[in-house]
């Protein structure tokens, strides 16, 4: 374990240097905190986590997949863009890894292209940044190129990859080797979920309680850093309706049309089935397939919900 120290007042210098040959994306305070490309290092806002996750940079809301002309088709692979993400919380880093797992299942060149060219710099939460956080109740992995621990006057910086180490090597005057111990990675105030296994709760009547408060607006899945479902659209050209493009857009399991199949059959018509499916996919089904729950405990789905459905509280109450 090697740790470095970076003076806080020199963070701007580091970011400025990174901006020379990459787009730096960091939390910026606008109407809410958002991950945005920055023009000046002073824009970086670390007090709160971003309201919207960074997923749109790898898995955009709308994306053209291929163009066709009636005879052949040509994939439209995005151009890789060198990007440095700064200030990703542990939950958001874990979320990126979990989306990697989903998009690796069937190799997705669109996602892969955007992911490969990204450098991930984490910011370890000194304490839970939102009352909805529950990352402490779910496994967080060590997944970053660099991780910044906030100390009073400086950052302790841990390297997590060759790419991360290279940054340290390239800027020796900014990073000082230190023999301080690695800080505790536990984030105080983020252990809200007290149910480890939700499988026995499948038939619990209280799912309806959550669904009764659900507008099926899809805010939860849109703001989730791990939700990766999408739907497909074709758009043809007016000049030649045999030609056009196929694209994908974010979708949501909370919408009744999500499970509509040929013959107009809808598998999950009922709101409580849809609500339960989201929680089960996040905490159970993904785990059965990949060994880890999909959910990372960032709490955005609760904070963004117009009626504040707190599924963590609901699960805790189901257990007792």
């Amino acid at each position: 374990m090697v740790l470095y120290r970076l003076e806080k007042k020199r963070l701007g210098e580091l970011i400025g240097r990174l901006m020379l040959d990459a787009e730096v994306i960091a939390p910026v305070k606008k109407d809410v905190v958002r991950f945005l490309p920055i023009a000046h290092p002073e824009e970086i806002h670390l007090e709160r986590n971003a309201f919207f996750p960074a997923k749109e940079y790898f898995f955009p809301q709308h994306q053209t997949l291929f163009q066709f002309d009636g005879k052949s088709f040509a994939p439209v692979i995005p151009k890789p863009k060198k990007r440095v993400f700064f200030g990703l919380r542990r939950c958001d880093l874990t979320a990126i890894r979990h989306q990697d797992l989903a998009f690796e299942e069937v190799k997705d060149p669109y996602y892969e292209t955007m992911r490969k060219s990204a450098l991930l710099i984490g910011y370890h939460c000194p304490k839970a940044p939102s009352p909805y956080c529950f990352c402490g109740s779910l496994p967080q992995i060590e997944f970053f190129d660099l991780m910044f621990f906030d100390q009073q006057t400086g950052f302790l910086v841990e390297t997590g990859s060759e790419k991360g180490e290279q940054i340290v090597r390239e800027h020796p005057e900014l990073f000082a080797l230190t023999d301080l111990p690695k800080p505790d990675t536990k984030i105080p105030g983020a252990d809200r979920l007290h149910v480890e296994n939700i499988a026995p709760l499948y038939d619990h009547p209280d799912w309806k309680k959550g669904a009764d408060q659900c507008l099926s607006c899809g805010a939860c899945t849109a703001l989730c850093p791990t939700c990766y479902c999408f739907e497909i659209h074709d758009e043809v050209s007016t000049a030649n309706p045999d030609a056009g493009k196929r694209s994908r857009s974010w979708s949501s399991c909370q919408l009744p049309g999500f499970t509509r199949v040929a013959g107009d059959h809808v598998f999950r018509k009922e709101r409580d089935h849809r609500f339960k499916h989201r929680i089960f996919h996040q905490l159970e089904y993904f785990k059965e397939k990949h060994g880890v729950p999909l959910c990372v405990g960032c709490g955005r789905c609760i904070e963004a919900c117009p009626t504040r459905i707190d599924f963590v509280k609901l699960l805790n109450e189901m257990k007792t």
């Binding site: 919207f52 507008l215 099926s216 607006c217 899809g218 805010a219």
Partner: peptide
Amino acid sequence: TDNPVCVECRQNGNVCLLEQGKPCLGPI
């Protein structure tokens, strides 16, 4: 589509107007 207005609204990165005290009928 039977998707509510909110689906595109969230994709556009808007912050919910209901949260800002406006009587938005997007969800229905």
